[in-house]
Design a protein around this nucleic acid. Structure first.
Length: 281
DNA sequence: CGCCAGGCTTCTA
DNA sequence: TAGAAGCATGGC
């Protein structure tokens, strides 16, 4: 991969397996939107970014090479060889189909706190509404950064009442968000510490937060803590495992099972006909 | 309008 | 201790 200063940003070229739509619209993050001009714009933590697909690579608009190196290289997991990850997967027809379809997908390294709140909000919810709620959360309680708003820190949310938080219209999840904020703010839960725990211990620690069960905990580990062995099992993945991977377990996919999970999830969401229609939770 | 949403908590047998 | 109901809200 080559990183060069471009006249209006930073251009990365010679990178395989990096598709903006597949990466930013595959259900792992909720703060990126496709502009009418084809650019992707979003915020990670308190850093806004606009991304553009060019013939010779991906352009990160209006940032310096320093900012790219300091933050965005890691955020987009650009030092990982995804072809090598795929080569390490077990040979399975449905997994081949999934990786072939979603080859340009990368797992973002999001902020643990942002991932925690985002996936608490995601429960029993749909993606457009999740994005709307998170947008209102940031506009209402985050500090401005350029034309955007930062994700509000635990200290800010911990002070709110459920009534005050109600303006984001997150429904019954308000109490869960406040519980998470209070426990992180007080230091009762240290997310950096959780990220470093053995995975079973990390799962248990996250699930002490109200509104965090097995699925949300797994999402926080995978998308917010860089734990690529984490394997979220939502209704889609449960169906995919039952119908496409009978007899397989998350462990069947190896140490990068979480990446396999994301290929499969995105493939099934975009091609629902690959699963039979019987929905069971 | 009715069904459902990247689930979880609480209630019930 | 498993299984189902209830949960706020709004996208489709």
């Amino acid at each position: 991969m080559k990183v060069t200063q471009h006249k209006n940003g930073v251009l990365i070229s010679g990178i395989d397996d990096f598709d903006l739509e597949q990466t930013l619209d595959c259900g792992q993050c909720f703060r990126f939107w496709l502009n009418s001009d084809g650019d992707w714009h979003g915020v990670a933590g308190d850093r806004p970014i606009t991304l553009r697909r060019l013939d010779d690579g991906i352009l990160f608009l209006n940032i310096t090479v320093g900012e790219f190196e300091e933050f965005w290289r890691r955020y987009f997991d650009l030092d990982r060889d995804y072809a090598a990850v795929r080569a390490g997967f077990p040979d399975h027809p449905a997994l081949r189909d999934s990786t072939c379809f979603a080859r340009g997908l990368r797992i973002l390294r999001q902020d643990p706190w942002e991932a925690l709140i985002s996936f608490i909000i995601s429960q029993n919810n749909n993606v457009p509404r999740i994005k709307g709620i998170i947008d209102r959360l940031c506009r209402g309680f985050g500090t401005p950064c350029g034309d955007d708003f930062a994700f509000p820190p635990p200290s800010v949310l911990a002070c709110l009442s459920t009534e005050e938080l109600g303006v984001i219209r997150c429904g019954f999840r308000a109490a869960y968000i406040l519980d998470a904020a209070k426990r992180v703010c007080s230091g009762q839960i240290d997310l950096e510490q959780v990220a470093a725990m053995p995975i079973e211990q990390a799962r248990a620690a996250l699930q002490t937060i109200k509104g965090v069960g097995p699925k949300v905990a797994e999402c926080v580990l995978l998308y917010g803590m860089g734990r690529l062995e984490a394997f979220p099992l939502d209704v889609w993945m449960k169906r995919a495992m039952a119908e496409l991977f009978p007899g397989c377990t998350p462990e069947s996919f190896g140490r990068f099972a979480g990446i396999a999970q994301q290929y499969i999830f995105h493939y099934c969401r975009c091609n629902p006909s690959c699963l039979c229609s019987t929905v069971q939770k």
